[in-house]
Design a protein around this nucleic acid. Structure first.
Lengths: 338, 338
DNA sequence: CTGAAAGCGCTTACAG
DNA sequence: CTGAAAGCGCTTACAG
């Protein structure tokens, strides 16, 4: 199958390659009739520009990178899907690059993909969006990037968030409205800045209700199902048993739920449990977990839009490229009156 | 940051660009001293070949595509991760392309990525690996591909499987060994050829045990949690209640489990439930689901190896490129004696 | 074992 | 509004 090149189109349309180039890139300064003819020929010949030739001569690759810690998680799948669909809309392609900071030499892997692939931009998911060394590598390579849920609004890059603090506050208020007073909290790992924001939201809502936080009922997990299982035990062993457990993510909430079931503690009658994330498992549990839906796909899509926007490539420091997207409370069976 | 090119390396090493090219591509016919010098200079200058220039002049892109129906599923995440890591080993990159056959014009999307990206090869996941029209597009474009779990061994492409039939047989034998006789079966959708193979395995094991299959306890689901929920109801309403339910995937098994819990049917005391897949939710449920682990990441990695193998690119019809990988039974709490 | 020349398929920068 | 020339950074095919 002979590949059709820009020359073939040009010859058939009776114009120069440059004119064809103008048409396929949507540039101005082409007479309407000529534009039409070229478009017709492109369609007839089923011509597709060679992405490599284009990248080689221009400085753009039409490739975006998604850099992520754990690409197997359900979280990663949502982020990736959002990014993928938006890339497609924009005629970009997406390359997913796992970043395993446990492994020696991970920095070289990142550099290699930046220089070998000439990425036009990168999306950095949490928690690596908070890694200063990683950000430095992108800055050195001159690759613009957008962060998803970083700890602080960056000065010279784009960022997309949801309001973790507010969301955790709403969840706490909801538990309070159900009459709960002894609300235990399972923290996420310190490496994820979102867990601190969620804890703040919880504390603020407790304080606003005039309630003291019982620090004995505040335990740190690592976002894993297993840690929810174990910390659930500790919380149910407390002298003043909590009537509700607010876990910093769904996996830990699920662990706590299983612990409750094992010990014969009825959920939600004797204990309410809620999480954060709205992962698939939160729906597959019984009772289903009350949680916060994060706009993961939407944040990723927004990140793509920012990277592709010419204005962003000119001025990454413009605050317009720092976006906050809406979350949603998902009320389900795992929470009930105190 | 001025990018380092092959000429810079050549100049500094005192050789021609062609010699540098030989060294970085690991070709023969370079004197050891010279090879060493070049390698040293490459390291000093931190030189990375420009993937686009390389692709443009050779006919290779060093890019592999993963074509998948539903890129958000846990299944997709596993397949993708396996492919990603192996691509990295092989110095290839992976591009994930969702194929939504519900959407008009999906064929053009596929063609566009094949011709625009000049993929060196493609991995096709189920169920689209069984779509003749899709395979035709790849064949027309001359892009070699490897199928994951297709219905039949292809003649002119690679393929990687697990033995769904044998695995389902083993699971059925396990249930039989626990003393179960009334074993209901929840089928998967007809669009997934694996579900037919699993059903065959179940039927064969029942037959081998001299048991007739109760066709009333054989219901078709669509692999969704919801269908497990609904079909679980029907099965528990049967006049002859089954003592075990074998669902064709974990999501449906989880649905059936929730139904049992809602109705107060104790699992596994009054009812055993098992699934197929070993998704994350199967561990987050209580009791945890007995299931079959599919070697998803391993199959994807093997697919990458096949695509990258020069022998494959010469002769796709070689039966050596049809591989069967091992599965594993995962015994957990959702199954017990009849 | 090594290199000079030509070319991959586009775009950039410049003319007209 | 349109095009001829040069070049992006490599590899292929050919010499020597």
């Amino acid at each position: 199958m002979k590949t059709v090149t820009i020359k073939d189109v040009a010859a058939r349309a009776g114009v120069s390659p440059k004119t064809v180039s103008r048409v396929i890139n949507g540039e101005d300064h082409v007479r309407p009739e000529i534009r039409e003819t070229v478009q017709r020929v492109v369609a007839e010949l089923n011509y597709r520009p060679n992405a490599f030739a284009r990248s080689l001569s221009s400085s753009r690759s039409y490739l975006l990178g998604l850099f992520i810690d754990d690409p197997v998680s359900g979280y990663a799948a949502e982020v990736q899907h959002g990014a993928l669909l938006q890339c497609r809309e924009r005629s970009y392609h997406l390359v997913v690059e796992p970043v395993d900071r446990q492994r020696a030499g991970w920095q070289d892997h990142v550099r290699a993909s930046l220089s070998g692939l000439r990425l036009d931009g990168a999306i950095l998911a949490p928690p690596i969006c908070d890694d200063a060394e990683l950000l430095g590598i992108f800055a050195d390579a001159g690759v613009p990037y957008v962060l998803i849920g970083p700890s602080y609004p960056p000065r010279d890059s784009g960022a997309v968030w949801m309001d973790d603090r507010a969301a955790a506050g709403e969840m706490t208020e909801y538990l309070l409205s159900l009459g709960h007073r002894r609300i235990a909290f399972i923290q996420g790992p310190e490496s994820h800045s979102a867990s601190a924001r969620r804890e703040e939201g919880y504390r603020a809502a407790m304080k606003a209700a005039g309630l003291a936080v019982n620090e004995d009922a505040m335990l740190r997990g690592d976002f894993s199902f297993r840690s929810g299982l174990e910390l659930g035990e500790l919380l149910l062993d407390l002298p003043e048993t909590p009537t509700a457990i607010f876990a910093c993510n769904d996996d830990m909430a699920l662990g706590a739920l299983i612990t409750a079931m094992k010990r014969g503690v009825a959920v939600p009658d004797a204990l309410s449990i809620c999480g954060f994330d709205d992962v698939a498992s939160s729906r597959a549990a019984w009772p289903q977990i009350t949680t916060i839906r994060q706009p993961n796909a939407e944040m990723a899509a927004a990140a793509v839009d920012i990277l592709v926007d010419p204005a962003f490539r000119k001025d990454c420091a413009d605050p317009a490229f720092r976006l906050m997207l809406a979350h949603a409370m998902i009320l389900r069976g795992s929470t009930g009156p105190a």
